[in-house]
Amino acid sequence: MSARILAFDRVGTVLADSLAAAWRERGGCVVDASVGGGIASALAETTPCGVVLAEPLLDESGFAGQALSAPEAATALADAVHRQTMTFLADCRAAIRTMMPAGRGHILALCIDDYAAKILGLPQTPIANQARAAALKSMAREYGRMGLGFNTFVCQPPREMVEKSAWRTRREQLKVYALRYRPVGVGGYSRFILSTINGDPPANGSVLCLGNGVMEMTA
């Protein structure tokens, strides 16, 4: 295992990209599995200290109330949910099988708080978020005793994720009062999340809700 290598399923998203940049700044190496054949292929060649699964990008805007009367919308969303869940589970399984022999490693799932994301017009879905959290809780129960850590980070949309003006124009719709005025910068999230990789945190199977003010996500 290399304590310097962090593998990502992809780094093209705001949160994952920031996390990868922060890891590199600390002298670490980043493996972007989206460039090759996915996490399983990437992990066949290296054993990282952690695997990061970038925030899901399933657009729910096409499934808003009025559009849902279309039969194809139902099948499209159901298919997308299946595809996304299967990919997530396969990535986690590959990560577990790779890191388990070393007796340590982290699997981190990034999520964007789906309620605020909807208001800000971002492509997120609560289905993927909740499926990820439930799966990682179960993995923590099953593999935590083998030194593997599994945590879900649910972040309010970072400041950089939408146009600066959106924080003003949509302010009234944001239920989290503090978020209206002080959205968290993506760097703040990255620093905190990386500290959990380096610091052997007393959290496993946790859903860590990050942001300014009260979060929406917790079940």
Partner: peptide, 10 residues
Amino acid sequence: AATKGGLIGA
């Protein structure tokens, strides 16, 4: 568990 979590999201 993942599927049942997904149902809560749905």
